[in-house]
Design a protein around this nucleic acid. Structure first.
Length: 206
DNA sequence: GGTAAGATCAGC
DNA sequence: CTGATCTTACCT
């Protein structure tokens, strides 16, 4: 089943809420991994966009790194964080408008062995796929996956809708200096997520 | 051409 | 609290 386009064409906070509980699949065959998205953060666009967001990578305008976020919704934006980790986002908003949803935590449903191996772990732990850097490593997502169409059956990484009736909890985004008080982080109640941490120089603005 | 800071994480 | 380690943005 294809993910409904209208939900991720919407404003980032609405797209973020719609993506909670959805399924993310990586790879094919015996090493394939399936997961449920449990924690996300919304990111907007430049000053003149419908959702100005000084905390977003799109804030300076279109650049080689963030270009996929200015394209159509439902594509994969991957970036390197602190030179060490990879972080994965799902682009949202209409084509031509900057925006994305950072995948902060997932629950692995299939392919636990592969994800443990990707993380270099030998047993299940709460840190397996909580936190954006851990998610990308557990799922095996790297810069090679940059720009993939998540709505295409033939992509290595795919997004599928799924029903759930969990309560959604909102709060400020983790670790941002700019727009640090904006409540654009969402997670499913009862799921394992990383504890909130403020940036040391958080500006406190929304 | 130099440099400071970052949508992070694990280990003291 | 700190270090790891790469990319970007912004300065001269």
């Amino acid at each position: 089943m294809i993910f409904p386009l209208d939900t991720i064409s919407a404003a980032p906070p609405d797209a973020a809420r719609a993506l909670l509980g959805a399924e993310l699949h990586v790879g094919e065959g015996p090493s394939a991994i399936s997961s449920v998205i449990t924690e996300v953060e919304a990111y907007g666009g430049p000053a003149e966009s419908p959702w100005p967001d000084p905390g977003a990578h799109t804030w300076p305008g279109l650049t080689p790194r963030n270009r996929v976020m200015f394209g159509p919704p439902g594509h994969l934006y991957v970036y390197r964080s602190y030179g060490i980790h990879h972080c994965a986002n799902i682009t949202c908003g209409a084509d031509g408008i900057g925006g994305g949803v950072l995948i902060r935590s997932v629950r692995i449903t299939t392919g636990l062995t592969t994800s443990l191996s990707n993380r270099g772990h030998t047993q299940q732990s709460t840190r397996l796929s909580a936190g954006p850097g851990n998610v990308a490593q557990a799922l095996g997502i790297t810069m090679d996956d940059y720009g993939l169409n998540l709505l295409s059956q033939s992509s290595r990484v795919r997004l599928c809708p799924a029903d759930h009736d969990d309560v959604i909890v909102a709060g400020p985004r983790v670790g941002l200096r700019a727009a640090s008080s904006r409540e654009w982080r969402f997670h499913l109640a009862g799921e394992t997520v990383f504890a909130y941490r403020a940036h040391r120089k958080a500006d406190g603005l929304t």
